[in-house]
Design a protein around this nucleic acid. Sequence first.
DNA 1: AAACAATTAAACCGACCAGTCTAATATAAT
DNA 2: ATTATATTAGACTGGTCGGTTTAATTGTTT
Lengths: 191, 191
Amino acid sequence: MSKPNTKVALIQAASRLFRLHGYEGISLNDILKEINIPKGSLYHYFPNGKEELAVEAIHHTKDIVLAWIEESFEQIGDPVKAVQDHIHQLAALLKDETEQVGFPIGTIAAEKYSTNEPIRSACQTAFEEWSELYSTKFFEAGYSEKQAKDYGVFILAAIEGGILLSLTTKSEESLLIIADQIPFILSKREN
Amino acid sequence: MSKPNTKVALIQAASRLFRLHGYEGISLNDILKEINIPKGSLYHYFPNGKEELAVEAIHHTKDIVLAWIEESFEQIGDPVKAVQDHIHQLAALLKDETEQVGFPIGTIAAEKYSTNEPIRSACQTAFEEWSELYSTKFFEAGYSEKQAKDYGVFILAAIEGGILLSLTTKSEESLLIIADQIPFILSKREN
DNA sequence: AAACAATTAAACCGACCAGTCTAATATAAT
DNA sequence: ATTATATTAGACTGGTCGGTTTAATTGTTT
């Protein structure tokens, strides 16, 4: 009990740095240096080293994003506008040099999906929970069960791709184009 | 002249391995070992080392994908069906263990967009040329200039995101859901 | 065949990697 | 106060990294 602040600080720093540079692009020394913590502490809290820390960092990133999506839906009733709001917030954050969001989960998933099963599994969980959160909101807003599910997957894919394009081109344009298309995608059709 | 087969072999191997494991996930020794080439040859053809090889590998990957998209459009006139065909081929390839497509450009872009300008720039070029190829095809098929451009970006983002989801979840489902939505996205609207 | 350039070959380098280890120190329990 | 436990501290290890260097070899030109 008492104060495992060190463990929390480690997870937060790892979450941020893995988001920005991926799994192989950040060393344990990088993480430790940033928060001034000795290596002994890391291996005390995470006996299985980098992999274990990464899995917990992925869960942490997942929870942050979940809460963030939820917030847009709670503040804005209309699911179409809520998704657009979320994307607009993303675009604004990517522009902001101080806020370094990076490519949440995407980078580490792309790197390790084929070579590290615990990490791939953690990334899958994150994607599934994000997608399911969208689906739940759509279903609650009156979409059919199948449409809610398909749209959840589709919106997540478009946003993930949009973040990657915007980061790579150093421009929010891709994300804004995607936001503009959202109303046409999220229509209640007969099929 | 004559036979710079070694250089081509290096670019092809690098293209494949970077696609699968990213920039930091693959060492020069990994690449050299796979095609049995000594380190001296690599630094003969690529004096600036890993970064220079990566930039050429990115261009190579870009060209492969360009030709591949083009093929779907040439074989199938209707742009909606052509995009669907391309996505279905992608989904099939990801399932096939022998064909290792990985996450073309995406992984290396996600890793290095903020820390290596030559690589970021090469990735941006790839994304732009892919997107513009889609746009050109849409425009030729009668879409308005703005719609053609926006749809090009949107389709690319959705496909990139879909590949990432399918790889991470080890299932073609995400890509198939996206393919099913394509007809509804690519509609000729008044706006 | 002699001279020259292009290419291959691999030993080698300092830097850094994830992970280990032992000791010191703080905190809690008795 | 004393013991036991949790945590901090950082030097250290074997291995791998990207990159360098020098020499051997091949190919081309004359």
